[in-house]
């Protein structure tokens, strides 16, 4: 006896629509991410003010370099 197969139809052409108005859950997702980043920036600003040594500066710069690369989207 062979394994039963269930056919899965393709999606009809024309279903893709990037211009559909943003639903509530995506709006919330956008706000949530902005809020999370805002908190992170406040934290980074606070850390920057407490840097005194070369080692602390290097560690901070490494963190910022990674963040800047990620934000540029050109990693």
């Amino acid at each position: 006896m062979s394994t039963p197969k269930i056919r899965v139809p393709k999606t009809a052409p024309g279903a893709f629509n990037q211009n559909r108005p943003m639903p509530q859950h995506l709006k919330t997702q956008v706000e949530h991410m902005a809020e999370a980043l805002k908190k992170q920036l406040i934290e980074l600003d606070y850390q920057m003010r407490s840097i005194e040594t070369e080692g602390q500066a290097a560690s901070y710069i490494k963190k910022m370099t990674g963040a800047l690369r990620a934000l540029s989207g050109k990693d």
Binding site: M1, S2, T3, P4, K5, I6, R7, V8, K10
Partner: peptide, 8 residues
């Protein structure tokens, strides 16, 4: 053979 697979 009792558990289906999907065929796209």
């Amino acid at each position: 053979e009792d558990c289906p697979v999907f065929d796209f």
